[in-house]
């Protein structure tokens, strides 16, 4: 069963366009939704739940169209969009008490476990929390009703490296132990290197890749050269470095050439791809 299917999602703004965005999520995998700032990540995620109204396209959660099954679908998903900046002067336990009543499967035990893990003090208000702690609070709220799909918009932004690492452990546990599906947008590529099964790459409102992380990384190599006027044929996204230039090249195009190629990581790919028009 497909957990989420997005087909030909279009939304036009005066200066930006989501153009035929399509992707599909399968159960029990972590999907990294990557793209630079302004590429369309948040607009896409907001369109999924109809916060933003797409001009056209089809969105199905658990093989059911969203509009006709909104309540049932929202019970089965958790959505976090940045830090908990709502009701900043109410104590966390008050906000939690109000929120949990909405969920049929709310689990206090799970919630308190996350509060302990994230060192959240229920007597504090969001205004007394740092940006990172606010993110942790919204994650604790979203992950305590046994959601089958978690949609997280930049959940690791604002977190210190140790907290980010802890959170990625939580994500891996959720997928392994509970079969949760996770879609999270980020521009911090190292997070994805560690935990993503697949990546969905959006650039200027277009999905330019959906692939397993390993095969995506394997599909490119990095080449180095000194003189930009002798840029090798097939080089993508030429980028200046201290001692020359680097560019990506599709792995399939490397055979038969007498050059040395380096393996790449997601950040290398992103930095070069974004240089291309």
């Amino acid at each position: 069963m497909s957990v989420l299917t997005v087909k030909n999602l279009c939304k036009t703004y005066p200066k930006f366009k989501l153009d035929n965005v399509s992707f599909e999520l399968e159960k029990g995998k972590i999907y990294g939704f990557i793209g630079r700032n302004g590429a369309g990540k948040t607009t896409t995620l907001k369109s999924l739940l109809n916060f933003v109204h797409p001009d056209s396209g089809e969105i199905r959660f658990f093989d059911k169209p969203f509009e006709q099954n909104e309540l049932e679908i929202k019970q089965k998903i958790g959505f976090v969009s940045g830090a908990a900046n709502y009701y900043i002067n109410k104590k966390l336990h008050v906000v939690t008490d109000v929120t949990k009543r909405f969920y049929d499967n709310w689990d206090d035990e799970v919630y308190y476990r996350y509060c302990e893990m994230f060192a959240l003090d229920a007597d504090k208000t969001p205004s007394q929390l740092s940006a990172g702690m606010k993110v942790k609070y919204s994650l604790a709220l979203a992950m305590s009703h046994h959601a089958e799909l978690l949609i997280l918009d930049e959940p690791t932004s604002g977190l210190d490296p140790v907290s980010r690492d802890d959170l990625l452990d939580v994500f891996l546990d959720l997928v392994k132990n509970e079969g949760v599906t996770l879609l999270f947008s980020t521009h911090i590529t190292t997070d994805l290197d560690r935990c993503a099964d697949e990546i969905i790459y959006i650039k200027n409102g277009h999905i330019i890749a959906q692939s397993t992380l390993d095969s995506y990384i394997e599909s490119y190599r990095l080449m180095r050269f000194i003189d930009v006027s002798y840029t090798p044929i097939g080089a993508l996204g030429v980028r200046r470095e201290r001692n020359g230039f680097t560019a990506l090249i599709p792995t399939s195009a490397t055979s038969g050439r007498e050059m040395e190629y380096d393996k790449v990581n997601l950040e290398d790919i992103m930095l070069h791809i974004e240089k291309e028009d």
Partner: peptide, 15 residues
């Protein structure tokens, strides 16, 4: 000021 709408939209309720 308290992002009430953003909060409410995340809940399992209809708009």
């Amino acid at each position: 000021e308290n992002n009430d709408i953003s909060y409410s939209l995340l809940l399992p309720v209809r708009k």
